[in-house]
């Protein structure tokens, strides 16, 4: 018995000529929250669909809660809760009726299903609308009700496909809180997201996925570290002054790079002082001087190669 709740090995899946998954592989330990991060079309939803028995992989294998997603699909379904990328609710029923419906389908008796529905209505702040048909809900409300519907019974593994897309900041924060609580209760969570901040906030570990394969993985901090750690940035708007500054700084920092009106060097101890002194002696007045860690955004762009003007290395030859 291993401690891995999700094990994915060399998973491949094509749709006609499109290769959605090209050998994706990773594992998620029991109790871990892992973020699947990738640009549109990277294969996030396809991965979730394969793991939740909605889609059959062409090749490769995956186990969820110890069960094979193809051969033991029924057991997998007993172990998972799923919130898909798009809400999956009965539009005709009210939010509360939906929660009762899924509770009943999952084995709660009438009373337990009603009690659970009330609890979830409270927890997801659906009180005002719980008695209205879902078809009248706004996108964010629908999203929340959908998530609540996935949590009607406790499952060891939870899949969330872009759970906060379309939520306002307050709802998003509330949802983060829910995920943290689930994590504290020991639930294993695999979530996909477009928001890097979200991965940073929630995930113990992040998997960067692009063109159907994992291109990098690590804790959010580890991934940021890959971009060479802290940088010092000098912004000079005037082109001639910038040229002077660049020349003067390059003497001490040969790794200097230019990006529009920003000069950038790797920062270590004493870098800031040295930079400021050199700018002064060159007689350049900088518009801004900062020292900062790279954002997960930059890591993302540099690794997936989807930033404008950056050659698409991962996709070369495709």
């Amino acid at each position: 018995m291993s401690e891995q709740m999700i094990q994915v090995h060399e998973l491949r899946r094509s749709f006609g000529a499109t290769t959605a998954l090209d050998g994706v592989g990773f594992s998620v330990a029991a109790g871990e929250v892992v973020g699947l991060l990738g640009p549109n079309g990277a294969g996030k939803t396809t991965t979730i669909h394969c793991l939740t028995t909605l889609l059959r992989p062409d090749s490769g294998s995956a186990r969820v809660a110890g069960f094979d997603v193809v051969d033991q699909a029924a057991q997998v379904r007993r172990s998972i809760a799923v919130t898909g990328q798009f809400a999956a609710l009965d539009e005709m029923l009210t939010g509360r009726e939906n929660l009762v419906l899924f509770g009943r389908l999952l084995g709660l008796d009438r009373r337990a299903a009603a009690a659970r529905a009330d609890e979830l209505v409270e927890r997801f702040d659906l009180g005002e609308v719980a008695g209205k048909p879902v078809r009248t809900y706004s996108g964010g409300l629908r999203r929340r009700a959908d998530l609540a519907a996935s949590l009607v019974v406790d499952r060891p593994v939870l899949f969330l496909d872009e759970p906060t897309t379309g939520l306002d900041p307050r709802s998003r924060r509330a949802l983060w809180e829910v995920v943290r609580q689930l994590r504290a209760d020991g639930t294993t969570v695999l979530l996909t997201t477009q928001y890097l901040e979200e991965a940073d906030q929630l995930a113990d570990r992040v998997l960067l996925i692009d063109h159907g394969r994992v291109v990098a993985e690590g804790t959010p901090d580890e991934l940021k570290g890959r971009l060479g750690g802290t940088v010092c940035e000098v912004r000079v708007e005037d082109p001639r002054a910038r040229e002077t500054a660049a020349a003067r700084l390059r003497e001490a920092f040969p790794d200097l790079t230019e990006d529009d009106d920003v000069l950038r060097v790797a920062a270590g101890a004493g870098t800031l002082t040295e930079v400021v002194r050199r700018l002064e002696s060159a007689g350049v007045e900088a518009d801004d001087v900062t020292v900062r860690r790279p954002t997960l955004d930059e890591v993302f762009l540099s690794l997936t190669g989807s930033a404008a003007g950056v050659p698409d290395v991962a996709g070369a030859g495709r």
Partner: peptide, 17 residues
């Protein structure tokens, strides 16, 4: 088809049914 479009059928498919 309406239930399929609203995603309801997909949710049923992920449930033990």
């Amino acid at each position: 088809a309406g239930d399929a479009r609203s995603g309801l059928i997909s949710r049923y498919r992920t449930l033990p049914m």
